[in-house]
Design a protein around this nucleic acid. Sequence first.
DNA 1: CTCGTAACGTTATACTGTAACATCATTACA
DNA 2: TGTAATGATGTTACAGTATAACGTTACGAG
Lengths: 153, 153
Amino acid sequence: MRQKTTAAERRAGLAAAERACSRSGKKLTPLRRRVLELVLNAGKPVGAYNLLKSLRADGFSDAPPTIYRTLEFLQAQGLVHRIAKSNTFVACSRPHDDHFGLIFVCRQCGGAVELEEQQVIADIGCCAGRLGFQMSRQVLEVEGTCRDCGAAL
Amino acid sequence: MRQKTTAAERRAGLAAAERACSRSGKKLTPLRRRVLELVLNAGKPVGAYNLLKSLRADGFSDAPPTIYRTLEFLQAQGLVHRIAKSNTFVACSRPHDDHFGLIFVCRQCGGAVELEEQQVIADIGCCAGRLGFQMSRQVLEVEGTCRDCGAAL
DNA sequence: CTCGTAACGTTATACTGTAACATCATTACA
DNA sequence: TGTAATGATGTTACAGTATAACGTTACGAG
Ligand SMILES: [Zn+2]
Ligand SMILES: [Zn+2]
Ligand SMILES: [Zn+2]
Ligand SMILES: [Zn+2]
């Protein structure tokens, strides 16, 4: 699973952040911008306390609420997703639209790939409908082994 | 979302546990049996430390490793699922077969319904195939509001 | 019997996340 | 310009979740 983030992807992520914030009337402050950069640069899911360590080097507060609040903001803007199975955070690969995505996370290398799969969404929506269940916007997590790690065995 | 577990469901869960253990050559010890009972009786996702409190009343050790080890065992037997989004555990609704399930969890009442949806599994398997990704057996979590809680708004 | 393994107990600690309140900056408006 | 409201961040303290490491007990195989 590819884990590098290209410079173009990082620029696109930050541009999406500017758009998302101006649309919602929120501010992309230096702290928020920096955290998003860190998540983009990681190129794979990264833990909150790891991000916190980087923030210290940049002169921001390194107390837990700093990073959790900021990540919450970025999630609300649809710029970052939380991966519950590993308590990590990853940059959204399609931050330009509201989506219901599917994220494949490799147990070996920690890499992640996000897809938007209309068919899956439709099928799950159908099940939800039968249950009278109202889904919230989210990404589903699929765990396993990526191609590279599988080949390396 | 219905949260009661019927006596029949509890019996079925324990019977499935007997079968799963005899098939895998493991033992369904009093502790394991008791934890499974507790999860079945809860009828909805329940936290590890809640289970631990109940164990104390039964004379078992109430140190964290007790419950985490036991839950890990029950998960390996396919009798219990872990819901990552809420750090809780719930009894499997179809413990008789290996499955790739879909679990709908209500944010309001905490209830959960587990489905096995062949179409969803097939679609996700297809995506995984394109990525060269080998999925592990699991359940996907869908968060939202159940019918009852939605109606109560 | 005794040896090896599985199961369980025990202690300590690591990791993850939030409550509550203080401080500072920005905006809005009298 | 004062001042009040709001949003963002800082700070302290703590709650909740999970595992490492090691000791002890139970029990069947040889
Ligand atoms: Zn996304
Ligand atoms: Zn991998
Ligand atoms: Zn199940
Ligand atoms: Zn509900």
